[in-house]
């Protein structure tokens, strides 16, 4: 009974008083915006890198671009995301006040290096005969890649991109470092007013968990559907 009383009180303190649920909703919104923006940016960067690397491997062209891509993936995968975030926020975009945008850029650039490998595997999984058929019709290397190979590659890696979205959703919780009001940061701020860490942290953990479970469900469903259409 005492526990139930605590729960009710803590709920009131955390969410109801001073309309704090609105802060949580704003935080959740920011978390989702950053995750979505970073995923889209990551897929664009990843696809670009994968295409450059594949064309370089197939034809030996684009040497300089390929070298830049190698450098980029080495740096991004070789440094912690929090450090990248701090560098973006305090050095590269020191003059920017839009910290959500900086977050999208930082996480997107980070994600791109990982998505590139996914995309590369997806491109490699497309039968080489597709490229040959495109080229034999007189289509250029670029058109063949863009219109024939990439759409099939993206379909191959769609579930993996869903998983990348899920891990980004969780990863973005470190953006509170920059004072961005994401869900985690809102919880911290509320705790500084209520002096009760238990309820808010468990509550946001459950929100994250709930979102991940829902997303997982859709990724699984997507995987199943794609597997069926391949048969």
């Amino acid at each position: 009974m005492a526990f139930w009383n605590y729960l009710c009180k803590a709920f009131e303190k955390t969410f109801i008083r001073e309309d704090r649920y609105l802060d949580f909703l704003t935080g959740l919104g920011n978390t989702l915006i950053i995750t979505l923006g970073a995923t889209i940016l990551g897929v664009l960067i990843g696809a670009l890198i994968a295409v450059i690397k594949t064309i370089h491997k197939q034809s030996g062209k684009l040497k300089v671009l390929n070298w830049i891509c190698e450098l980029y993936t080495t740096i991004i995968r070789g440094t912690p995301v929090v450090v990248q975030l701090l560098i973006m926020y305090f050095i590269v975009f020191a003059s920017s006040t839009n910290s959500v945008m900086v977050g999208i850029l930082a996480f997107g650039i980070n994600s791109g290096a990982y998505v590139a490998e996914l995309m590369r595997a997806g491109i490699n999984a497309v039968d080489i005969g597709q490229t040959e058929a495109g080229r034999s019709l007189g289509l250029s290397r670029g058109v063949t890649m863009r219109s024939i190979v990439l759409p099939q590659a993206i379909k191959n890696v769609l579930p993996a991109i869903g998983n990348e979205f899920i891990s980004l959703l969780k990863e973005t919780s470190v953006i509170g470092f920059l004072g961005v009001m994401d869900m985690t940061r809102v919880a911290q701020r509320v705790i500084s007013r209520t002096a009760d860490p238990y309820f808010p942290y468990i509550a946001i953990a459950l929100v994250y968990l709930g979102m991940v479970c829902i997303l997982n469900y859709f990724v699984k469903k997507l995987e199943k559907r794609l597997a069926k259409s391949d048969r």
Binding site: D127, Q130, E132, A133, G134, S136, G138
Partner: peptide
């Protein structure tokens, strides 16, 4: 070569139609 290939048709053993 793209212009050359556009004037030569090719048919493959595994058809290689674009599935999408």
């Amino acid at each position: 070569l793209d212009q050359v290939r556009a004037r030569m048709g090719m048919v493959f053993q595994h058809f290689n139609l674009f599935p999408h």
